[in-house]
Amino acid sequence: MEKKNLKKLIDDLGFTCVANENLLDREVNSAYVSDLLSDVMGKAQPQMLWVTSQIHKNIVAVASLIELSAIVIVNERKPDEDMLKLAQEEGVVVLTSDNPAFETAGLLYNYLNTAP
């Protein structure tokens, strides 16, 4: 099965890339939904998307350390310049979704579990 990359995923699901548009060829295999950083640190696996409503800088460190594919910030929340600058430096892709967490996770679940 052909793997899905971030570029195709954001086009198909209507997410917006706000940091590291040059890294959208990254593959995605699954996603993890949580606003607790230690939960993500302990359970999320490399190449996953992280769906969260947190927007502060520390989520960048978490995503970078465990090598997630991208962060998906939900609910039309917008991270500040400081956070985006760090994400650029660390090579962390940041996406935003206009939907709340439940709808965003539902979209991703269907998308990632369907053959391309």
Binding site: D35, L36, S38, G42, Q54
Partner: peptide, 15 residues
């Protein structure tokens, strides 16, 4: 509020 303090830090370290 920042998503820390879930009481999972030390268990994560131990694991």
């Amino acid at each position: 509020e920042m998503g820390f303090g879930a009481g999972m830090g030390l268990p994560n370290i131990k694991k």
